[in-house]
Design a protein around this nucleic acid. Structure first.
Length: 887
RNA sequence: GGAACAUUAGCUCAGUUGGUUUAGAGCAUUACUUUGACAGAGUAGGGGUCACUGGUUCGAGUCCAGUAUGUUCCA
C-alpha cells in the first residue's frame, strides 16, 4: 500500500472518531469485568475548550483508554455544570442585546429564556472534546439541572436540614445598592481608586463616660469612609503598641453622635498603617465584622438597601452615602475632629453589573454546618483511603478541613436550584420538597389552615449540586441502589485542578460518605495550572490562551495532546509553549517514517534468503529488542501507577526514537538493494504493533491509523486491543541487555573515533580487540562491524601499530584504517580525558585518605570508593598507553 | 495577615531512606559528517559555585534553621 509522505491527521481524526463511535467502543454497561470509572469534572455549560480543559481531559482520556486496553470495563461520564453565575450573566447579556431588562421579567419568564439559551449554546464544549479524541460514554451525558438531578439536590437540602446541618444565619455579603441585590465575590471587580485617607480625632471618655476635652487626650483613627463612623462600635489597637496600650479598657466618644464605644486590643490591627488605631464598624466591613463577633460588639446598620443613610445612622437620614460623606467631613472639620487628610490609593470593589461601589452588608443566608459532616472526609484522606497525587495537597487539605468554616449556600440568582424553603407573610418558614408538602408541614407546625406561602427567591450555590456528581450521574440518589451506581461507584480517579480542592473535591468526599457511605473516588490527580511563557495564568481576560480548535486544525489532535502532556510535570504548573506541539508533530513524523521504512521492506521481503542475500544472520537484535521492550514497558507502567504521566510518555518516546528507530531498525536494515528476510520483518512488525499499542492512549488517532496500515487484516481495532499482560510479566533478559549496552557504546565510540580521525564513511576499517573475556564480543561482533563499516574483527593480545586505541567496556580496542590517520584530534581528546580522570582520582583518594571517612562510613560505601580508585587507575594507565600508541 | 508549595544548564524538569565514577534528561544551541525511512538523521561539544546564609555530619542538591524571590489558596 502506498503511504503518504506525512500523516494526514485531518481525515484520520474524522474517520477514526466516527469509527469508534459506530462500534460503540466508548459505551459501557455493567458486566463481569472490573470497572474503571472516571467522571468528568463538569465544565460550565457556558464553557468553551481552553488549555486547562485540554490538559485535564487529555489526562483523563489517557487513563481511560489505558484501562480499556488492560481489560477493565472503562466508563468515562461526560456532562456539564449549570454554573449559575456564569450562565445567568450570559442570559442577562443576551436579553440586554434584545433590549430586555432582567428586572422587567418574572422568574418564570427569565428561566424560559435561560433554558432557551442553554439549549442553543450550552454544551458546545462537549462537542469540542470529541475533536480532542476523548473516549467519553456519550449516552451517559449528565447535566446538573436535569430533572432527576434537580430533585436530588432538593432532596439533599431537605435531608441535611432535617438532620440539623443546614441553618439560616447572618452573613456579610457584597451589596449592590443600585441593583439592590447581593453579589457573589466573583461579580465584584476591584479597581484601583485615588481616594482620601481621613485622620479623625475621637475624644476619650472619663470613668463616667463623659467626653474629656480634646486637650486632655484623644485617639486618632484613619478611615477612607468617614460616614461609617456613625456605625462605629469600638476602636481597636494592637495590644503590643506602646502608644495606645494604656487606653485598652477605656472608652472613646464617636464625634457628632456622642456614642460611647470601648477601646479594645486585637492583634489584627497593623501598627504601621494609618494612625495605628482602627475604628470598628461591624455592619459595614468584613474584617470589622469578624472582630465584632470576637469581642461581642454591638452592630449599627447605618445604610438602607439603596445606599442612603438609615435611621440607625442618626444623622443624614435618607441622604446618599457619598453626599453624607461630603457633609460629615465638613461638620467634623468645623468641630475640630479632622487632624489631616492624606491622598490615598486603594482597591475598591465595583459591581460588575452596575459599576457602582459595592457596600459590605449583613444579610440573612442559608448555611451548611460543615463541622457536622467533615470528619469522615478528613480521615479518608489522612488514612490513605483516598490518595492525592501529588501528595503535597494532603497537607493543604488537612489544614483546610481542620479549620473548616460554614458554607454559605444561598445565591441571589434565579438560574439554579431554587431553595426549597417557603415563607409566610410574617417571615415564618418551612423547608419541604415542594409547595404542597410545604403547606402541609406548615399547617402542622403552626396550626394554620391553608397558609399563604411564598418560596425563597434565591437559588443554591452551584457547588451544592456538583458535590453530588460522582454518584448522581449514576442516579445514586434519585434511584438508590440501582445497578449502575452499585457497579461504577466508587469511581477510580478524579482529575481536576488544585484550585477547586475545597470548592469541589472536599465537598464531594463529604457528600460521598454522607449519602453513599463510601468514598467517591480512590485517587485524585491534581493537574497544574497552564501558564504562558511569561508565567501568567492563561485566561480569557489576558487573551493569552491559544485557540485550541484552531491548533488542533493546524497541527492535529495527537500533536496537541503530546505537546500539553510532555510539558506537564506531575503536580506542577506548566509553562506551555507552541514549541512542544512541534515536538509532538516531529515525533509523529518520526514514527510515520518508521512505518514507511517497514512498508518499503515489505515490498522487498521474501522467505528463506540465500547466503548472498542475507545481511544479518542472527536473531540477536530481535531478542534484544524483545527484552528492551519489556524492560521499558515495565518502567512506563510503574510511572503510570504513580501518575507520572509525563515521564511515562517521555520513556516511551525514548524507546521509540532511540531504541526502536536508531538502534533496532538500523540493526536489522538490509544492505543496499538487498531483500528483507520475511521472518525478520514479521518480528519487526510485531514489535511495532506493541509500540503503537503503548502509545495509543496518548496519541489515539495516529496510532490507530498506523496500526491498520501495518497489516491490513488486523483482527481488532487498536482502540480495544487488549494489552498482553504475560508479555510484560516475563522478566527482561539481563545478559542481552548488558550486551546491547556494550554494543551501543562500542558503536558510538568507534564512530566518534572515525570522525575525529577524519576517516570517510565509505572507507572500511579493521577492528582488533584485546579482550579480557572474548565471549562478550562474539554475539555482537557482526552488528558492530555492520554499524561502523568495519571489514574485519579480530582478537589480539598485542598492541596494533599505527592504529587508534580506544577503551570500550574495559577492553582495549584498536581501529586500523588503510590510509594515514590524522591523530591530532584524537590526541587532544585523550589528553582531556586523562586530565578528567586524574582529577577524579584525586578526589577519590582525598576521601579515602580521610581517616574519619574510612572509619565512619558504611563498608560498602568505602568499598565503592576503592573500586572507583582502582577503575580510575586502570583507565589512566590505558589512556597513557593510548597516547603512546599514537606515537 | 495566615498557610502551603517551589527555587537544579538558555527553557521545561528528573534526582527514591544523605555516599553508585568530581550533578542527569528532553527541547533549544554550536561544530562536523551524511543525504536511499526521517519539513531531517548521525556523532560530538558548550552550558550549572544545585537561590542565599548558617548549622548537623566523615560526607549535603538531598536533613535542620533563617533570609530572599516566586506562585497559589484562605482572610
Amino acid at each position: 500500500m502506498e503511504i503518504s509522505k506525512t500523516f494526514d491527521f485531518k481525515s484520520a481524526e474524522q474517520k477514526w472518531y466516527q469509527h469508534w463511535l459506530d462500534h460503540k467502543y466508548f459505551e459501557s454497561t455493567p458486566d463481569h469485568r472490573e470497572p474503571y470509572t472516571v467522571v468528568i469534572p463538569p465544565p460550565n455549560v457556558t464553557g468553551i475548550l481552553h488549555m486547562g480543559h485540554c490538559l485535564n481531559n487529555t489526562i483523563q482520556d489517557i487513563l481511560v483508554r489505558r484501562a480499556r486496553m488492560m481489560g477493565k470495563n472503562a466508563c468515562w461520564v461526560p456532562g456539564t455544570d449549570h454554573a449559575s453565575i456564569a450562565t445567568e450573566a450570559k442570559v442577562v447579556h443576551m436579553l440586554r442585546e434584545r433590549g430586555i431588562q432582567k428586572s422587567s421579567l418574572s422568574r418564570e419568564a427569565f428561566l424560559e429564556y435561560a433554558w432557551e439559551w442553554k439549549e442553543k449554546y450550552g454544551g458546545i464544549i462537549l462537542q469540542q472534546l470529541k475533536k480532542l479524541g476523548c473516549s467519553l460514554d456519550w449516552n451517559r451525558t449528565s447535566f446538573t439541572m436535569d430533572p432527576d438531578y434537580y430533585q436530588s439536590v432538593i432532596h439533599v437540602f431537605n435531608d441535611l436540614y432535617s438532620k440539623g446541618y443546614i441553618y439560616r444565619g447572618k452573613r456579610m455579603i457584597n451589596w449592590d445598592p443600585r441593583a439592590k441585590t447581593a453579589l457573589s465575590d466573583e461579580e465584584v471587580i476591584f479597581k484601583e481608586v485615588q481616594g482620601k485617607l481621613y485622620f479623625l480625632q475621637y475624644q476619650l471618655a472619663d470613668k463616667e463616660g463623659n467626653p474629656l476635652p480634646l486637650e486632655n487626650g484623644s485617639i486618632t483613627i484613619a478611615t477612607v469612609r468617614p460616614e461609617t463612623i456613625l456605625g462605629d462600635a469600638a476602636i481597636a489597637v494592637n495590644p503590643s503598641d506602646e502608644r495606645f496600650k494604656h487606653l485598652i479598657g477605656t472608652e472613646a466618644i464617636v464625634p457628632l453622635i456622642n456614642r460611647r464605644i470601648p477601646i479594645i486590643g486585637d492583634d489584627y490591627v497593623a501598627t504601621d498603617f494609618g494612625s495605628g488605631a482602627l475604628k470598628i464598624t461591624p455592619a459595614h466591613d468584613m474584617n470589622d465584622n469578624q472582630i465584632g463577633i470576637k469581642h461581642g460588639l454591638a452592630v449599627y446598620d447605618i445604610l438602607n438597601e439603596d445606599g442612603t443613610m438609615s435611621a440607625d445612622a442618626q444623622l443624614y437620614i435618607g441622604l446618599d452615602r457619598f453626599d453624607a460623606r461630603k457633609q460629615i467631613v465638613e461638620e467634623l472639620k468645623s468641630a475640630g475632629h479632622v487632624v489631616k487628610i492624606d491622598e490615598y490609593t486603594h482597591q475598591v470593589g465595583f459591581s460588575e453589573r452596575t459599576d457602582v461601589v459595592v457596600e459590605p452588608r449583613l444579610s440573612l443566608q442559608w448555611w451548611v454546618d460543615m463541622k457536622k459532616i467533615s470528619s469522615p472526609a478528613l480521615n479518608a484522606v489522612q488514612d490513605g483511603e483516598i490518595n492525592f497525587h501529588p501528595a503535597k495537597f494532603k497537607n493543604l487539605y488537612r489544614h483546610w478541613m481542620e479549620n473548616i468554616k460554614d458554607w454559605c449556600i444561598s445565591r441571589q440568582l434565579w438560574w439554579g436550584h431554587q431553595i426549597p424553603a417557603w415563607y409566610d407573610a410574617e417571615g415564618r418558614y418551612i423547608v419541604a420538597m415542594n409547595e404542597d408538602d410545604a403547606k402541609q408541614k406548615f399547617s402542622a407546625m403552626y396550626g394554620i389552615e391553608n397558609p399563604q406561602l411564598k418560596q425563597d427567591e434565591d437559588c443554591l450555590d452551584t457547588w451544592f449540586s456538583s458535590w453530588l456528581w460522582p454518584f448522581e450521574v449514576f442516579k445514586g440518589i434519585s434511584n438508590p441502589g440501582n445497578k449502575d451506581v452499585a457497579y461504577y461507584y466508587p469511581t477510580n480517579t478524579l482529575v481536576t485542578a488544585p484550585e477547586i480542592i475545597f470548592f469541589w473535591v472536599a465537598r464531594m468526599v463529604m457528600a460521598g460518605y454522607e449519602y453513599m457511605g463510601e468514598k467517591p473516588f480512590k485517587d485524585v490527580y491534581f493537574t497544574g495550572i497552564v501558564r504562558d511563557l511569561q508565567g501568567r495564568k492563561m485566561s480569557k481576560q489576558l487573551g493569552n490562551s491559544p485557540d485550541l480548535l484552531e491548533m488542533i486544525d493546524d497541527i492535529g489532535a495527537d500533536a496537541v495532546r503530546f505537546g500539553i502532556l510532555i510539558a506537564s510535570p506531575a503536580g506542577n504548573d506548566l509553562l506551555w509553549d507552541k514549541a512542544s506541539n512541534e515536538q509532538g508533530r516531529n515525533f509523529i513524523n518520526k514514527i510515520w517514517n518508521a512505518l514507511k521504512l517497514v512498508q518499503l521492506w515489505k515490498e522487498r521481503s521474501k522467505p528463506n534468503l540465500s547466503a548472498e542475500e542475507m545481511t544479518l544472520g542472527s536473531d540477536w537484535p530481535h531478542e534484544w529488542f524483545d527484552a528492551r521492550l519489556r524492560e521499558v514497558c515495565t518502567e512506563a507502567d510503574q510511572l503510570m501507577e504513580q501518575f507520572k504521566l509525563s515521564e511515562a510518555l517521555k520513556t516511551l518516546y525514548t524507546l521509540v526514537w532511540d531504541d526502536f528507530c536508531s538502534w533496532y531498525l538500523e540493526w536489522i536494515k538490509p544492505g543496499f538493494e538487498k531483500p528483507m528476510d520475511e521472518a525478520h520483518l514479521n518480528k519487526a512488525i510485531g514489535f511495532f504493533e506493541i509500540l503503537l499499542e503503548r502509545l495509543h492512549p496518548y496519541m489515539p488517532f495516529v496510532t490507530e491509523e498506523m496500526y491498520h496500515l501495518l497489516r491490513d487484516d488486523q483482527p481488532v481495532d487498536l482502540c480495544v486491543r487488549q494489552m498482553d499482560a504475560s508479555f510484560i510479566a516475563r522478566d527482561a533478559d539481563d545478559a542481552i541487555l548488558k550486551e546491547a549496552v556494550l554494543l551501543k557504546s562500542a558503536i558510538s565510540t568507534i564512530r566518534d573515533a572515525r570522525v575525529k580521525a577524519q576517516i570517510k564513511n565509505k572507507d572500511a576499517v579493521s577492528l582488533f580487540v584485546a579482550a579480557k573475556d572474548r565471549s562478550v564480543w562474539l554475539p555482537i561482533q557482526e552488528l558492530l562491524c555492520k554499524q561502523v563499516n568495519a571489514k574485519a574483527f579480530s582478537f589480539t593480545d598485542d598492541a596494533v601499530a599505527d592504529s587508534i586505541q580506544l577503551v570500550i567496556g574495559g577492553d582495549k580496542f584498536y581501529v586500523k584504517a588503510d590510509q594515514v590517520l590524522d591523530t591530532s584530534i584524537q590526541r587532544k581528546e585523550l589528553e582531556t580525558e586523562l586530565a578528567y580522570f586524574q582529577g577524579f582520582l584525586e578526589s577519590v583518594e582525598k576521601k579515602l585518605s580521610n581517616e574519619k571517612f574510612v572509619s565512619n562510613a558504611k563498608q560498602e560505601v568505602v568499598d565503592m570508593e576503592r573500586k572507583k580508585q582502582a577503575d580510575a587507575l586502570n583507565k589512566i594507565k590505558m589512556l597513557k598507553e593510548g597516547l603512546a600508541n599514537l606515537g
